[in-house]
Design a binder for these strands. Structure first.
Length: 573
RNA sequence: GGGCGUGUGGCCUAGCAUGGAUAUGGCACUGGCCUUCUAAGCCAGGGGUCGCGGGUUCGAAUCCCGCCACGUCCGCCA
C-alpha cells in the first residue's frame, strides 16, 4: 500500500531526479521544521558538484519544480528547498486512507520475510525483576512494530534448562526444608520458589560439598541422564509458569520457548564443536578447546573463547551457537534483545557463526540495566524490586489518581479497569520511551509520574476523542476537506498522515522509542485541536461533520500506535 | 590494563547512523485559563560552556584524536 505522504514524497523525488539527472547524487528528504514546509531537500552536498552556493541551488531548484495535485509550492530557504503539500488533497486522501484501513492504518506492505525476535530469555530461577524489565518490553514492542512493518514475526524465549542457575534451584528444592527458606507474600510460583534458589546459592558459596553436588547435577543433565533432566524440569517449570503470568499481565505473549537442551539432544552442538575444532583458530589447553579471537579484534586480558570443557561438556555460548544456526535456517532476519552484560558473548557467537559459514548473523539490541539508587539489582542477593511489585504499585497509584478525579462519577469496577490500563501502560511507556542504551536509575516518583510526557496524557487524549464520539448517533463519517482550514486541524491531520513514516523509521532503525515520541506528539496536537475547535457545538454542519471525522481518525491512529506499544486505549478515564 | 556503551538547563529526555534552518520536549519553578465536547488538559515566562580539551570543515550536539566521569564485560559461569 502506498500512503498519501509517500505519493507526495515520490513525486518530489522524481521531479528532483529529472532536474538533477546530470549529477550523481542521492536524493534524501527530511521533514521540515514546523511552519517551514512539509519536506525539505538540503542542497549543501550539491554545492561542490554544481559549483554554486547552496542557496543559489535551492532557488533555481525551487523555480524548476512544477506544481501538481500534491505539490502546492516549493520555496528556497537557507540552502533548503521546502516543499509544501496541497493541504486539502492531503487531508482528503489521508482521511480516506484511515477509514479504509482502520486498525491496519499505518501498517506497511507485506514483505514476505520471516523474523525471529529472541527476547527475555531469563534464567527460570526466580521472578522477573525490574533490572531486566527492559528486555521483554523492548522485545515485545519490536515484535509489534515489525509485524506492522509487514514482516512475519515469531517471538522466542531461549530457555536455559541446563546451566548452573537451574541446577542450584533444583538442588535447593530437593535438599532444603521450606522452614529455612525465606517466604514470599506473593502466591505466584516464581515468588514461592525463588527463596530456595537464594538459600541454596548462599550455601553453595560457603560449603564445597554443596557446590560439588550442584556441579554433579549440571554434568549429569548435560550427559542426558533422564532422572536429572526430569528433576531440573520439575524445578524450573513452576518458576517459568510464574514468569509467563507476569508477561501476560503486561500484554506479552511468547510464541515459542526453546530449551537449550534441544541442541545437546539433537547433537547439533556436537557438530558445532567438530567444525570449530577444524578451524585454524582452534587450540587446546589442558584438554579443553578454545578459539583464539585476537585476530577478530577481540582485546583484553583474555582473547580465548572456550567452547568445550576438559570434561567434554559444552558451554552456554557453544549451545547458543547451535541455537543461532537453527534460527538462521528458519528465518530471513534475526533480532536479539540482550542485556549489555552479553556484549562479549554475543560477539563470540557471531564470530563462531561466521567461521561455520552461517548465512545470517543476529542484529542485537543491547539495553543498559535498570538500577536502584543504591546500585545494581541482583536476584541472588535478594536486592531487587520484582516486576510484579512494580506493577502492583503502578496500578495502585493509578487507582488513587482515578479515584481522586472521577470517584464521584464512576463505580469501583470501572475505576479498577481504568487503573489497570493506566498502570500497565505507564510501565511499558516509561521503559520504551528512552533509548535502550541509556542507564536508568529506578525511582518510584519518576516511574509513577502521571503527568506530562507519560502514558495517561496519551490515553486521556484517546478517551477525550471517544467521549466526543459517544455523544453522536450518526455512525457515518462524512467530511469536506475544504472546511478543515484551522491551523490546529491542519497540523493534526499532517501528524496523522505521518504515522506510516514513523513505523518505517522505527522498524528499519530498530528504534521502538520513536513510536512513543510519535504518540506524545499526536496526543499533544489533538489537545491543541480540542482547545481551538469545538466539535459538537459547531453550527456549520459540514464543518462539524468534518471535525467529527477528524476526531474519529485521531482515535484510530492513537489506538493503532498504542497497540504497537502493547498499551490499552481506554474509552473513558 | 583493554573492549563496548553512556554523558544535552536543578532532574529526565529528543536530535548523533546521513554535519546545515532559532538545540526537542517533559518534570520542577513563576504567572494566566474550567457557566463551552473530561483541567490526567491548554497558554505564557525564566533557566543551556550539548562532560572537558584539541582537530577537520564555510559550518560540529552530530565526524576524528586525547582526557575525565559513570555503567558493563574481559570465568573450562550463564
Amino acid at each position: 500500500m502506498t500512503y498519501p505522504l509517500d505519493k507526495f514524497k515520490n513525486e518530489i523525488i522524481s521531479q528532483l531526479k529529472k532536474i538533477l539527472s546530470e549529477y550523481e547524487c542521492e536524493i534524501r528528504l527530511e521533514i521540515s521544521p514546523e511552519g517551514m514546509g512539509d519536506f525539505a531537500f538540503p542542497c549543501f552536498s550539491l554545492a561542490p558538484l554544481v559549483k554554486k552556493s547552496p542557496n543559489d541551488i535551492a532557488e533555481s531548484l525551487a523555480d524548476k519544480i512544477e506544481k501538481s495535485k500534491w505539490i502546492a509550492k516549493a520555496e528556497a530557504n537557507g540552502g533548503y528547498v521546502n516543499f509544501f503539500v496541497d493541504d486539502e488533497y492531503l487531508i482528503s486522501s489521508t482521511l480516506r486512507s484511515i477509514f479504509e484501513m482502520k486498525e491496519k492504518y499505518g501498517h506497511l506492505q507485506k514483505k514476505n520475510k520471516k523474523v525471529i525476535i529472541e527476547h527475555t530469555s531469563a534464567n527460570p530461577n526466580g521472578p522477573l525483576h525490574v533490572g531486566r524489565a527492559r528486555n521483554p518490553i523492548i522485545g515485545d514492542t519490536l515484535v509489534r512494530i515489525f509485524k506492522a512493518a509487514g514482516y512475519d514475526v515469531e517471538s522466542q524465549f531461549y530457555l536455559d534448562d541446563m546451566g548452573k542457575q537451574v541446577a542450584i534451584l533444583a538442588w535447593g528444592l530437593n535438599n532444603l526444608d521450606s522452614k529455612n527458606v525465606p517466604k514470599s507474600e506473593y502466591d505466584k510460583p516464581d515468588h514461592q520458589n525463588v527463596g530456595f534458589y537464594q538459600a541454596a546459592n548462599e550455601l553453595m558459596e560457603k560449603d564445597e560439598k554443596v557446590a560439588e553436588e550442584i556441579g554433579e547435577i549440571v554434568k549429569r543433565s548435560e550427559h542426558g541422564e533422564s532422572k536429572t533432566i526430569e528433576l531440573i524440569h520439575k524445578a524450573y517449570a513452576l518458576v517459568l509458569e510464574g514468569i509467563n503470568k507476569s508477561l501476560h499481565r503486561i500484554n506479552i505473549q511468547i510464541d515459542k520457548y526453546i530449551p537449550e537442551s534441544t541442541f545437546v539432544r539433537d547433537k547439533s552442538v556436537e557438530q558445532v564443536i567438530n567444525k570449530l575444532k577444524k578451524t585454524k583458530y582452534c587450540h587446546e589447553e589442558d584438554g579443553a578447546f578454545y578459539l583464539d579471537l585476537e585476530s577478530f579484534g577481540i582485546q583484553g586480558r583474555n582473547t580465548k573463547f572456550f567452547f568445550l570443557r576438559k570434561d567434554g561438556t559444552t558451554l552456554y555460548a557453544t549451545r547458543d551457537v547451535a541455537y543461532h544456526q537453527w534460527k538462521a535456517k528458519h528465518a530471513d532476519l534475526l533480532i536479539n534483545v540482550l542485556g549489555e552484560d552479553h556484549k562479549l558473548e554475543s560477539r563470540q557467537v557471531e564470530i563462531a557463526l561466521k567461521l561455520l559459514g552461517t548465512k545470517i548473523s543476529p542484529r542485537v539490541l543491547f539495553y543498559a540495566f535498570v538500577s536502584l539508587p543504591g546500585g545494581k539489582m541482583s536476584t541472588r542477593r535478594a536486592r531487587v524490586v520484582y516486576l510484579d511489585e512494580l506493577l502492583d504499585e503502578c496500578i495502585e497509584r493509578a487507582y488513587r489518581e482515578v479515584e481522586k478525579r472521577r470517584g464521584s462519577e464512576l463505580s469501583e469496577g470501572e475505576m479498577k479497569k481504568i487503573a489497570e490500563m493506566v498502570g500497565i501502560g505507564s510501565l511499558r511507556y516509561n521503559i520504551i520511551k528512552v533509548q535502550p542504551e541509556k542507564d536508568i536509575v529506578f525511582r518510584w516518583e519518576e516511574a509513577l509520574n502521571f503527568e506530562g510526557n507519560a502514558v495517561p496524557f496519551i490515553q486521556y487524549a484517546h478517551a477525550r476523542a471517544c467521549s466526543i464520539l459517544s455523544k453522536i448517533k450518526d455512525e457515518k463519517r462524512d467530511f469536506d476537506s475544504n472546511t478543515l482550514k484551522h491551523d490546529s486541524e491542519v497540523k493534526l491531520m499532517k501528524q496523522l498522515a505521518r504515522f506510516p513514516l514513523f513505523i518505517e523509521d522505527a522498524s528499519s532503525g530498530y528504534k521502538p522509542h520513536i513510536i512513543a515520541n510519535y504518540l506524545y506528539e499526536t496526543a499533544s496536537k489533538f489537545n491543541q485541536f480540542y482547545r481551538d475547535c469545538p466539535v459538537l457545538s459547531e453550527k456549520n454542519t459540514m464543518l462539524g461533520k468534518s471535525r467529527i471525522t477528524l476526531v474519529d481518525a485521531t482515535r484510530i491512529v492513537l489506538n493503532n500506535a498504542l497497540e504497537l506499544l502493547g498499551i490499552s486505549a481506554p474509552e473513558e478515564m
